[in-house]
Design a protein around this nucleic acid. Structure first.
Length: 280
DNA sequence: AAAAGATGGTGAC
DNA sequence: TCACCCTCTTTTG
């Protein structure tokens, strides 16, 4: 689940469920126990996301920093106010118990107690986040337009752009008919700004629906009379994890290749390389 | 039943 | 470039 939209959604849901009231903070698994004790019983002041980083603010400028990584999950479960709190299942690194909601963190790459300075330093390293109002797309453009690296690689670099993951990368490039191997410095400013605007809209949609849907109206299963996607992601997409299947737009076979240790997906016809401007 | 793989990132080499 | 983190689902045997 965890691309930027997931973390912004969690920040919103955590604020709704816990902010302004005392929270029981614990670590059933034990790995976050010493830190949890320091915060137990204090009110959550709020939760915020920056790219894929999540920060839970407690009094005294103390922050729980969470990064879900590839497999981490932060699950919110409502429970009856008069009922009992459900027992933790599996390895729960962090558990927040509020008036009517339990939040369990499992499998995260990072769960740390940070100071304001640590939070600021982390945020300073991140590129603009399309889900933040004050984000400046030109900051990302400065990096992209000066880079000989492929745009496929740049989009996943969190210091260039914060919050995009493997699904949004593949889908954004498809929607703009850009070859993933096109060099950053071969993109036009106009192209990039169009991609940014699209990303802002797509990711806001992702926060609202808690999934990633990227197909335009004319390419939905209903519009095309095709079967809806069935897997654990659920979202309707053009190329992500559709290797070997026909492109929804042109029918060419969707391709995959490894890039920076991650799987890249694209349509070789819709996203045709623009001659010598690609790096492979 | 066991293995592989996944929406991510770090740190060692 | 690779091992690792650590969970859960899907695929393979």
């Amino acid at each position: 689940m965890p691309e930027g939209h997931t973390l912004h959604r969690l920040a919103h849901d955590l604020t709704d469920a816990f902010a302004g009231r005392p929270v029981r903070v614990g670590s059933p698994q034990g790995r976050f126990d010493a830190e949890a004790r320091q915060l137990d019983g204090q009110p959550l002041e709020g939760a915020q996301a920056w790219g894929k980083q999540l920060f839970l603010e407690f009094p005294g400028e103390r922050y729980i920093h969470i990064h879900l990584g590839l497999i981490g999950k932060l699950q919110l479960t409502p429970y009856d106010a008069d009922g009992h709190v459900p027992p933790p299942i599996g390895q729960v690194r962090l558990r927040l118990v509020g008036e009517n909601t339990v939040a369990d963190l499992r499998g995260a790459t990072a769960c740390d107690l940070w100071t304001r300075e640590q939070v600021d330093a982390c945020v300073a390293r991140l590129g603009p986040d399309p889900l933040r109002e004050d984000a400046d797309p030109l900051r990302a453009w400065t990096r992209i337009s000066r880079s000989q690296r492929s745009i496929g690689s740049l989009l996943m670099d969190q210091t260039v752009l914060a919050g995009v993951g493997n699904v949004y990368r593949a889908e954004l490039l498809f929607r703009h008919r850009v070859d993933p191997y096109r060099r950053g410095d071969a993109l036009t400013r106009k192209q990039w700004l169009a991609m940014w605007d699209d990303l802002v809209a797509l990711m806001h949609d992702g926060v609202a629906t808690n999934r990633i849907d990227t197909v335009r109206d004319e390419h939905t299963p209903e519009a095309m009379g095709r079967d809806p996607r069935v897997d654990d992601h659920g979202g309707e997409v053009y190329v992500y994890r559709r290797t070997g299947q026909p492109c929804h737009v042109c029918g060419a076979t969707v391709r995959t290749a490894e890039l920076d240790g991650r799987n890249l997906f694209w349509c070789p016809r819709c996203q045709r390389a623009s001659r010598s401007r690609a790096v492979r």
